[in-house]
């Protein structure tokens, strides 16, 4: 008996000691993340909270809803509608173009898939500014596409392809497509090919097997990709600013104009707060079903 007690007792002491030192360690290790956290707070969280706070006051410094009421004016309402229209259109085109690519990627043998993947990743790595410039050069009045269409006799006048909605949507689809393909591919890769073979064994035609087995299983990855693409479109600035030519008033370009041209911080902040809430609500809604953050693999 005594022998047993002597064996157990030191073990208990050690445990509590270890636990205490572990929680102490936990505190000191979390301290290592503080410099980064402080920088993010100083550059991102505090400035934005400050602006959000300011949006609650009118020009004379009184608490008011003026900045938010103003957002109901037709010009702002129209920019909301344009933003959602562009985001919806771009996302829909990305789904139509991206689903087949992700599907083929998931079905190809490893080596071929790796080669195909390089072609999806290369635009991802190329600066958005460079790609937007390339579209501008391709789509402008004297650009290659108009020249080819003219010389082939398909059109007699150059088409207005840029500095409007068409150019903005084309440019944004090009930027967003990899954001849809990559999470979708990851989720398709996780579908067990045995299930498709089982469906075939049960007498399903390839089309049936795809429709009844593969498609439903790929829907969770597809909705993560759709949410990500849509939300990125909502706040996207560069391409609408350059390819829209001032004619496509989106949320982001409105915010930038209000700050840069009119120095109207109240209105810009109110607009940003609404955009942030909409973005957060969409991401939060989708996150209930799946972790969108898991879909983030690489560079944005």
């Amino acid at each position: 008996m005594t022998v047993m007690v002597q064996e157990v007792k030191p073990a208990i002491i050690n445990n509590s000691l270890l636990q205490r030192s572990r929680s102490l360690q936990g505190i000191s290790f979390i301290g290592l993340s503080l410099p980064a956290a402080m920088l993010v707070a100083a550059v991102l969280i505090i400035p934005f909270s400050w602006l959000a706070w300011l949006s609650l006051f009118d020009a004379t410094g009184n608490l008011s809803t003026e900045n938010y009421v103003r957002l109901l004016r037709p010009a702002y309402v129209e920019s909301f509608l344009t933003t959602f229209k562009v985001a919806g259109l771009v996302t829909a085109i990305c789904v139509l173009l991206g689903y087949p690519v992700a599907y083929l990627l998931s079905q190809l043998p490893q080596r071929a898939a790796q080669i195909l993947m390089v072609f999806v990743i290369l635009p991802f790595w190329t600066s958005v500014l460079v790609r937007t410039y390339a579209w501008l050069v391709l789509l402008q009045r004297q650009g290659i596409i108009n020249q080819w269409l003219l010389s082939s006799g398909l059109i007699s006048e150059p088409l207005p392809l840029v500095h409007n909605m068409t150019g903005t949507v084309i440019g944004m689809v090009h930027v967003m497509l990899p954001f849809l393909i990559l999470p979708l591919y990851a989720s398709m890769k996780a579908i067990d090919p045995v299930l498709l073979r089982a469906a075939a064994n049960c007498g399903a035609s390839p089309a049936q097997a795809f429709r009844q087995v593969f498609l439903p299983l790929s829907l969770s990855g597809l909705s993560a990709g759709i949410a990500l693409t849509f939300v990125l479109c909502l706040g996207f600035y560069l391409t609408p600013a350059l390819l829209g030519g001032g004619r496509v008033a989106m949320w982001s370009t409105q915010i930038a104009d209000m700050v840069a041209k009119f120095a109207n911080w109240g209105a810009a902040s109110a607009l940003s707060v609404v955009l942030l809430i909409v973005t957060g609500a969409i991401l939060g809604g989708v996150n209930r079903f799946m972790r969108v953050s898991n879909a983030w693999g690489g560079k944005p």
Partner: peptide, 29 residues
């Protein structure tokens, strides 16, 4: 290394710069 209660809060705060539209960062800064 840490299993602190603050860990999820800090790690999601540190991911914010990647999630938030750049135009917000730009006007805030």
């Amino acid at each position: 290394k840490s299993g602190n209660l603050l860990k999820p809060i800090i790690s999601s705060a540190l991911m914010l710069p990647m999630m938030v539209p750049l135009i917000f960062v730009a006007i805030g800064v």
